[in-house]
Design a binder for these strands. Sequence first.
DNA 1: CGCATTAACAAACATTTGTTTATTAGCAAG
DNA 2: CTTGCTAATAAACAAATGTTTGTTAATGCG
Lengths: 198, 198
Amino acid sequence: MAGTQKVDMDGKPRAVIMNVAMHLFGKQGFNGTSMRVIANAVGLLPGSLYAHIESKEALLLEIVADGIERFLAAVEPHVASSGNPLDRLRKMIIAHVEVVADNPERSQVVFHQWRFLSPEYLPEAIERRRRYEACFVEVIEEGVKTGLIRSDLNHRIAVLSILGAMNWTPEWFSPDGRLSAAEVGDLMANTLLGGILS
Amino acid sequence: MAGTQKVDMDGKPRAVIMNVAMHLFGKQGFNGTSMRVIANAVGLLPGSLYAHIESKEALLLEIVADGIERFLAAVEPHVASSGNPLDRLRKMIIAHVEVVADNPERSQVVFHQWRFLSPEYLPEAIERRRRYEACFVEVIEEGVKTGLIRSDLNHRIAVLSILGAMNWTPEWFSPDGRLSAAEVGDLMANTLLGGILS
DNA sequence: CGCATTAACAAACATTTGTTTATTAGCAAG
DNA sequence: CTTGCTAATAAACAAATGTTTGTTAATGCG
């Protein structure tokens, strides 16, 4: 009786479908997830999905767009806020990890499955990703100008290292673990900002 | 006439097929790459591939196994070598980036497509990944014991941050860029080991 | 040449893919 | 009760999937 369990359809069924698709896309990938397994997980027949959604790609598009928006919404407020750049950067890292931890599967879709958007929607997704990176570049450069951050290192490499470390978190973070998302984010900030040297 | 160009079949055709599949798997994903597009890229008809390979999954298995082995071969020598842990860790980071840069697509397969191995081969792949992580854990813990590395930070988080930063490199590294792989690795080591504080 | 071997082809295979259609059950409002 | 609407079903669609088959062209060796 595996995989035959229904999902409570309280609330708009479109949201239920989106949610199920999000988890499956995150775990099996977009191309590794058929409409039939989505339907089965929701508790519907394949064709019935199309009463609520337009297409498989529309699902992906909405998940990706909404997902990126959540990261931006969590991080952008700290970019231009008051306080010194270092504290702000720490807050951004924590915020990022919190968004990841809130839903690792969604994060995986945002980080990896956006490639499978059709050329029509790709540029917008890429632009939003660029905007996200720009947030970190901006704060780091401000930190360099104010003398809080080393000026002898390659900023681009530093930003990409930080982003990489953060984007890897859905790969290992467990909501059942000992550390909360905020704690993990704080510890990551310790490593990334202060380094590991004693 | 797009996609009809043949590939020079010098050398064993199996290696050519593997190489083509590796690049496509890395860019489009395992499930996003059909045997037909592989065949077309190689310059063969779909069925002809099976004179040289056993199955699509056999391709993936070999690419993943061989790929992980390259990372291990590059990094493991530094784990138990002489020299202080910090220098060794730096060398490991550089070695890792060099393997990524040598073939970013292969790295993407190693990092992301191993999920699509069948349950039969999954455990071995996971075990090899674990072994790889263990290399970094070992050196870092030695660094802590010898007092070279801060003991006030979470080692696991530190290792995962470093691994995350490194595993993100295939996402942005370009062989045509200004920096060589070794230079990028060195700069990343600066950031990850020393932090960004001034 | 004659013969075995190799590797390619052309064609088909059974399934699975995303999606559409025609139809039916459930239910609220007049 | 009847009407109208929503959302599900059952069934089918064309296309694409990984793979197998029977056959043919090319190659090396006695």
